[in-house]
Write a protein that binds this DNA or RNA. Structure first.
Lengths: 337, 337
DNA sequence: TTTATATGCGCAAACGTTTGAGCAAAAAAA
DNA sequence: TTTTTTTGCTCAAACGTTTGCGCATATAAA
């Protein structure tokens, strides 16, 4: 069966395409199309198995019913959960979701954003990976509704919603300090992502507040490999730490594997606390204490902000930071000097 | 800056839109556009920051450069990995990816598929969730290039690539049997997904081959909750099992949590083997033996098949089953009677 | 009966591309 | 010089919608 168009229906019913279009768009009453005609049109549309051509409709109307989602990667559970929650909401709102993964590569991200401009998307939800994104700024300047999640740019007035990473970093570190630790290493992820930066700032502030000078900040990627490598390096270096603060659960896994290889016991030899919770953490040989982010809230707030912008509410600079929560388990020992 | 169109460039250069279009599409030589003109067009396009309108272009040409990906959910690591791998390849091929999550709900899936028809997508990669999908069949009949991953329909000649789940189920169960277990429970996921069905068939066959009559097959969802609940039920029932085979890593987590609550030791009291590998598994209090699926291969083969179809190669019914691999860890004890 | 209002629908342009066909001028061949 | 070929580009239609405006006809009011 060939693709049926509006004008096929029109021909069949000996009506104009205008009438068909109006009925099918729910604008029939507004344009005073008779009740009976409406019925006949709808029936014929069903009978012919009519499928609207979104490309034609978008070309004319400018509406694409499409939202783009740009995140580092969906194979990181943190982003996967958020992507899934967002996608579910968008589906309910009858939007299609375009998925863009940047793989933490700002060139890929920029390229994707550029290509998005061709698609007339109506909104963009993005966890940007670059230090500063010219492309994102361009999109923003062009009037596109954008909301940043997890990461954002302090110098751009793009609305964002993220965990209060500074507090998270501070809480985690303070907890370690309160438990008696003084030599605390921090294995970070992407140095240019604001969420990483804020976590590190929290770490530093907590140490400063406690009058601790020694700080060890290493790492550069939110992945297992980085956690493994940096832990190995840490153990082989001369610095002696009694606790490690990993800035993502992926990093934590790598760290744990390295610790195990070196036969270091958690928490007896080294304590561990990590950003990001995961259902696995409580099942590990040592259940890992973590800083849990309010995942669902992030997506929900993001959607709410986006909808606000789409409904032409005045473009305010909404910036939401949500409190994280420490989930206490057994990977941090109290250390008394 | 307003959106610039091809005709803006044309006006600026006093050329026809046809010429601009041809240059910008790389068809300049084919249509004998002068070298110098080509340069001037390209420069002006850059200068005006021209962005092609994909909707107009698709409307005319029928090409959408869009592939849809339909999976249960991206918050299941198995699908997340696959989605990510596929998306990366599609990006390289200059396709945009539309993400559709069905949440294992066939109505949602059907609705999404229906809406896809409006988008003129060029291909569809899907892990269908229903028992049989009318919508999918319609799309297939309409000539769309489709490849199924992980799940498929044996009665439709849609190409698919999946793990050989029968073998996987057989291997896992045989291993348990070889280790001396006779009472083996199987906690399954979605009963209607062929991957689940095949795994169960493998489980049954292995038991039959060993002359074991007792079979315990329970469960109905590929998630943690199901694993937890079914394990609880299993433990409270009168049947006594010495080993459990969970059909996904999510189920395994729930199972482990239940076992821990009931103070059952793995593998001393009960042995566990699970489908799906995960970087976490080796870090658990008891490293879990698993049946690892060839994730990357699945995506790669899927892409290859899809490309073949897109390039108008004869539509053959390619059906690929890839061998899984057992990763031996410590969750299965040998039991001697 | 004439005039005003309501009802039901159609005309035709527009959205920004792509594309088959074709035309004028320049270059080459005769 | 005339004819053929090549070069460089343009015309205009088409893709399937949406939409501002407008035109009959029917009904109600005067």
């Amino acid at each position: 069966m060939p693709v049926q168009t509006i004008s096929d229906i029109a021909k069949e019913l000996k009506l104009s395409v205008t009438t068909i279009s109006r009925v099918l768009n729910g604008k029939a009453d507004q344009y005073r199309i008779g009740k009976e005609t409406q019925l006949r049109v709808k029936e014929m549309a069903k009978k012919l198995n009519y499928i609207p051509n979104e490309y034609a409709s978008n070309l004319r109307s400018g509406k694409s019913n499409t939202i783009a989602l740009s995140i580092p990667t969906v194979s990181n559970m943190f982003f996967a959960k958020i992507a899934s929650d967002l996608n579910r909401e968008l589906r309910k709102l009858e939007f299609m979701t375009i998925l863009n993964e940047s793989d933490e590569d700002e060139h890929i991200e920029a390229e994707s954003l550029k290509r998005l401009r061709s698609r007339n998307i109506e909104g963009l939800i993005i966890a940007p990976c670059g230090k500063d994104s010219k492309e994102l700024k361009k999109l923003h300047d062009s009037g596109l509704s954008i909301v940043c999640i997890d990461r954002y740019f302090e110098n751009l007035d793009i609305p964002y919603v993220a965990t209060d990473n500074f507090i998270g970093g501070y809480m985690a570190t303070k907890y370690l300090i309160d438990m008696g630790h003084r030599n605390i290493a921090c294995i970070q992820g992407n140095k240019f992502s604001i969420s990483n930066i804020k976590r590190v700032e929290g770490y530093v502030k907590a140490l400063d507040d406690a009058g601790i000078k020694e700080k060890y900040i290493e790492g550069e990627m939110f992945d297992e490999r980085n956690g493994y490598l940096e832990t190995k390096l840490l153990l082989q270096s001369r610095v002696h730490v009694s606790a490690i603060f990993t800035l993502s659960s992926t990093i934590a896994i790598g760290c744990l594997k390295a610790l195990r290889e070196e036969a270091i016991k958690v928490p007896e030899d080294i304590s561990l606390i990590t950003f990001d919770d995961s259902p696995y953490l409580e099942l590990l040989s040592v259940p890992i204490t973590s800083v849990a982010q309010p995942l669902l809230e992030i997506s929900q707030v993001a959607i709410r902000i986006l909808l606000g912008m789409l409904n032409d509410e005045p473009r305010s600079t909404i910036q939401v930071l949500l409190k994280p929560k420490i989930i206490y388990r057994d990977s941090v020992s109290s250390k008394s000097y």
